[in-house]
Simulated assay, not measured.
Amino acid sequence: MSKPPPSSRRLWDLSPPVSPTAPIFPGDAPFQLQWTARIGPQCPVNLSAVSTSPHVGAHADAPLHYADEGAAIDAVALDPYLGRCRVIHAIDCGPLILPQHLAHAAAELPPRVLVRTAQKADTVWREDFTAYAPETLAWLAERGVRLVGIDTASVDPASSKTLDAHQQLRAHDLRVLENLVLDEVPEGDYELIALPLRWVGACASPVRAILRSLT
C-alpha cells in the first residue's frame, strides 16, 4: 500500500518557547524542569518533572479562571479550539483593541478570531501590553465568534482588578487563547488547532497552538 503524499498546507507555530525565563505575571509560578532520573548503568531512560503555572506560554483560560462557578479546563468543549479562524492585524493600536480596529476584516467572520497587536511578541514581562476593550468582545460575540485570541499576556490590562474583558468572555461563553506568537502570520483565514490538555480542576492549560493554511 503506497503512502499518501505529504501535505502541502503550510503550518505556523503560534507557541512561544516555554522555559524558566518565559515571561509571567508577577507572583505567578514560573516554569521549572528537573530531572528525576537519567540514563546510566542502573537506569534505561531519562525522566523529568515539571512545575509551572498553566498560564505560562500559549495557553487557554478556563471559565474557572475568572468565575468560581466556571468550568475547569478539563470540562470545556474542544470544538472552539479547532477549525476555521481569522487573523486580524491591529498592530500598534494602543492600549485597547476597539471594534474600529477590526472592522476592516469583519465581513463573514469565522467562529475564531486571533488579533495581532505587536510587530514582535514580547519575550520579557511588560505591563503596557495591548488588551481587548470589553465592548470589542461583545461585538465579536454578536457576530458569531466563539473563540478569541491575542498575542499578549491577557485580554485585560495588567493593572485591571475588575477583569472586565474576562467577564465579557464569561457573559458570552467565549473561549480564549493568550500569549500567542503571530509575528509571521499575514491577515487572513486559516485552520486553528490549539487543544488544551485535560488537566482536571485546572484554571487553564498550555496549548501548542498552530495555524494551517486552508489550501
Results as ranks from 00 to 15, higher is better:
L197Y: 14
D74K: 01
T117A: 07
Q100C: 03
R112Y: 08
E142K: 11
D128W: 13
Q32M: 13
C85N: 05
L98F: 04
D28G: 03
R10D: 07
Q168M: 15
E135H: 11
A29Q: 11
E187F: 01
P80V: 09
A121M: 08
D173W: 10
G27Y: 07
L182W: 06
A103L: 14
G27M: 08
L192N: 02
F25K: 12
P206C: 02
W199D: 02
Q119E: 14
D122P: 03
F25C: 13
A165R: 02
E135Q: 15
R170T: 06
P196L: 09
W12R: 02
P196M: 12
R170H: 11
P111G: 13
L102G: 01
V185F: 03
R84Q: 11
L163C: 13
D13S: 13
A58I: 07
R212D: 05
G188Q: 05
R170N: 10
E108P: 01
G70K: 04
K3F: 10
R126Q: 14
P26H: 09
L78H: 07
D173S: 14
T136S: 12
L182K: 05
A158K: 08
V18C: 11
S2R: 04
C93K: 01
P63M: 02
A72P: 01
A22D: 04
A121T: 14
A202V: 05
R116T: 03
L197N: 06
D189E: 15
S213D: 15
R170L: 15
R86K: 12
V76A: 07
D28M: 08
I210T: 04
V115W: 00
Q34M: 07
A29C: 12
D79F: 03
D183C: 04
D164N: 14
H55T: 11
V56Y: 00
W35K: 03
E135M: 08
P80M: 10
S159E: 12
S51D: 10
T152H: 02
Y132I: 11
A141M: 09
A107V: 12
E191Q: 15
A138Y: 03
R86C: 07
A71L: 12
W12L: 02
I150V: 09
P17Y: 11
P16A: 11
V181G: 00
A194W: 00
R126M: 14
V207S: 12
P134V: 10
G57M: 07
A204C: 06
R9F: 05
S19N: 11
D156N: 15
T162C: 11
W35A: 03
L11K: 09
D183R: 01
Q167D: 06
P157D: 05
S213M: 09
E127T: 10
L177R: 07
I97C: 01
W199Y: 08
S48E: 10
A29H: 09
D173N: 14
G94V: 03
R146S: 13
E187L: 03
L169K: 14
R208A: 10
L82C: 15
V207E: 09
A37S: 10
T117Y: 09
Q167K: 15
D164I: 01
L174T: 00
T152G: 09
L169H: 12
R146Q: 15
C203R: 12
C85E: 02
E178S: 10
C203W: 02
T52S: 13
A158R: 08
